[in-house]
Amino acid sequence: MEIKVVRKVLDANNTMAAQNRKLFAEKKVFVLNMMSSPGSGKTATLERTLSLLMPEVKTAVIVGDICTSNDADRLAKSGAPVIQINTGDLSGGDCHLAAHIIADAASNLDLGNLDLLIVENVGNLVCPAEFDIGENARTVVLSVTEGEDKPLKYPLMFRVCDTAIVNKIDLLPYLDYDIHAAVSNILQVHPQMPIFQLSAKTGHGFDAWLNWLKRQLLI
């Protein structure tokens, strides 16, 4: 006997994400989900972003890390409230932040007193793309020390994101990296996606990135 089910496997997560989105909208907090492969510079980009936004834009960060508090410690120096989630303690080293984790973390934040909440997801270009957390926008960070063909290998991530950052451009003179190829690969997967070429180390390119971010807060 066949029983029709027709249910999305990620129903539970999607429902939770919708609740988060509603709560964030009520509290007028814009939520940005930042994703990348390990080490492309999410934390470094955020450190500089926070230093340029705070205190004008009241920002908090939720950071997922498999098992250290290093990123949280670095980000807390900005004065922004930082909530750290060790996914290693949950179901055996989770590869992404799920919506219920964000709900828990957000309950420890004074949302009414925030303009912007940035989530640094777990370093991974596959799984986080599949999990809605109730964010308003998604950014993928790529660095010039990775292959130019990353967008072609992980198309879902580049499709679901609204913007891309190509980070560590201060290293370009020392590498054979073809940044034009990288940009054209991103656009092949997601035509018209805004792309910001940054150096979290020198601050190069941050004006354009911050302008985009601030524009989102006004929408």
Partner: peptide, 10 residues
Amino acid sequence: RELEIASIEI
């Protein structure tokens, strides 16, 4: 982008 259970057979 589907990830869904269509049916089960008992």
